[in-house]
């Protein structure tokens, strides 16, 4: 879920698939609009690191391409 707006009292408005809701942020500390949060039972429990996700996918694409080229004998 992505932070749309930071509210008072350790709360943020988040959006997921067009639905907005309030979540508590005291278990993750201050958040910024645009950040992605992992939410459980009304509380954000961690920030999602988008860069790590993109980097990991890129590495796998490269590794798979290498392995498939090797397996294919090319």
């Amino acid at each position: 879920m992505q932070v749309v707006e930071v509210k008072e009292e350790e709360t943020a408005l988040v959006e997921s698939f067009g639905v907005q809701r309030l979540v508590r942020t005291r278990l993750v500390g201050p958040v910024q609009p645009g950040e992605f949060l992992m939410v459980h039972a009304g509380y954000a429990i961690e920030k999602i690191d988008q860069e790590e996700a993109a980097e990991r996918l890129k590495l796998w694409e490269e590794l798979l391409a290498d392995e498939e080229a090797w397996a294919g004998g090319t």
Binding site: Q2, V4, V6, P33, G34
Partner: peptide, 8 residues
């Protein structure tokens, strides 16, 4: 504070 870009 609202975010428009980046969601998609």
């Amino acid at each position: 504070m609202a975010v428009q870009q980046g969601i998609t």
